[in-house]
């Protein structure tokens, strides 16, 4: 039963990834696309990681997943900020 729920959580995470990709495709300008891509992707990777941890719940896997999520939480906002700043300075933040 736990394995089934874990696999379902994995599918939910993948659906969030599709949502992020869809947002990156259809939204009108670079900043909106980034809004969709980074936030949804961070949430999706977190959900997928929880699903994986529940599926193979060894201590080794959980420690690695915590390191991965910490890495993402530390780097994603910095990368997003740098990219948004560059897009704004480059004038690419208007709809096209």
């Amino acid at each position: 039963m736990t394995a089934l729920i874990a696999a379902a959580v994995l599918v939910v995470g993948m659906a969030l990834i599709v949502l992020a990709c869809f947002g990156a495709l259809v939204l009108p300008d670079a900043l909106s696309r980034q809004h969709a891509a980074t936030k949804a992707a961070t949430l999706a990777v977190t959900v997928v990681a929880i699903g994986l941890g529940a599926l193979h719940g060894t201590t080794e896997v959980w420690i690695k997943l915590v390191v991965l999520l910490f890495t993402l939480a530390a780097t994603m906002p910095l990368a997003s900020h740098a990219l948004a700043r560059a897009a704004h300075h480059a004038g690419d933040d208007t709809p096209n």
């Binding site: 990777v45 991965l68 990219l83």
Partner: peptide, 20 residues
Amino acid sequence: HRDIASRIVVVDALASWAIA
């Protein structure tokens, strides 16, 4: 997408996709 910033956003999203 024609502008460079959007393409960088898509490449960033590709990285998230690869992690998943």
